[in-house]
Nucleic acid binder design. Structure first.
Ligand SMILES: [Mn+2]
Ligand SMILES: [Mn+2]
Ligand SMILES: [Zn+2]
Ligand SMILES: [Zn+2]
Lengths: 150, 150
DNA sequence: GAATGAGTTGGAATGATTCCAACTTGCAAG
DNA sequence: CTTGCAAGTTGGAATCATTCCAACTCATTC
């Protein structure tokens, strides 16, 4: 039953939407709140389920619409791994993703600016990149072979 | 009308397949030859079209099967960008991809080992990655505002 | 030359996403 | 107040890459 947006977050939402000439709606508030509440890179379907608890009449189409809108105004990022369902991430800091193949969970990995620089530097002259995506794939301790105690 | 596989490439094919208990077939030879002939990261559909010129009866399902087999035995890599059709790349050297948004073309970008190292090093303890994918998105000179002459 | 197993084939099924046309809302103009 | 947009929402249909499946082909083994 998702917690309402903080004053700060509501403002961020309103501002970002306004910047691209769009309005805050009840649906958008809830979808945004869902993303902020649990930053686990949910799929559209995940968001749909969670948001529905607060707004039973919400439609899947609207969730797609809201998320597309948010991506458009830079409030969230899309995260793709292979051909799986697209996931959404409200973390705006530069970061890479680690996909745990045991659990399916996606973790944010902070990206130091110098790494980003060194990556840009490997591009041959004439290549101008506006976006760099980095994703790791493997296993994390999380999918724990529980070594401590027990 | 795709050139036949060189002796060397045919051996690589045969060896890799054998390693995972599979055989060389006429279809696999052609699909592999198509990948080697033009290393432009073709989609399944692209491969299908090109391969059909040499083998009119070839089916799309078989192209899917061959490519999956090749990925399985490490002969080619899958390349995904956002939700577009999967592309295939026979370049086995460690490299990143640059997707030119003007042309849709995908370019290989060589990845120096030290960059790979530095990337691995940003993973928090407990994260073991077996794969790192890096993709750039932007414009290259290729989609040329033709400045020279004219 | 029947049996076996791998591979191939065409078409059906799947599933995420997109499209669409009707409906709702919030607000502005008269 | 009514009326009239324009933006947003909705449910269901359409799309399209990919996967699934059951029948068929082939090469090899007994
Ligand atoms: Mn793996
Ligand atoms: Mn772009
Ligand atoms: Zn993230
Ligand atoms: Zn490549």
């Amino acid at each position: 039953m998702i917690q309402k947006l903080s004053e700060h977050d509501r403002e961020k939402l309103q501002e970002s939407l306004a910047h691209s000439g769009q309005k805050v709606t009840a649906q958008r508030e809830i979808v945004f709140a869902v993303l902020l509440a649990k930053r686990d890179h949910p799929t559209v379907e995940d968001v749909f389920q969670r948001a529905r608890e607060s707004m039973p009449g919400l439609s899947l189409a609207t969730v797609y619409n809201c998320l597309e809108t948010f991506v458009g105004c830079g409030l969230v990022r899309q995260v793709n791994h292979e051909r799986e369902s697209t996931r959404y991430c409200p973390n705006l800091a530069p970061h890479a993703h680690f996909r745990d193949e045991a659990t399916g969970h996606v973790h944010d990995i902070e990206l130091p600016p110098e790494i980003i620089q060194s990556l840009r530097s490997i591009l041959p002259p004439g290549f101008n990149s506006e976006t760099i995506e980095i994703s790791f794939h493997g296993r994390s301790q999380e999918s724990a072979p529980r070594s401590t105690s027990n």
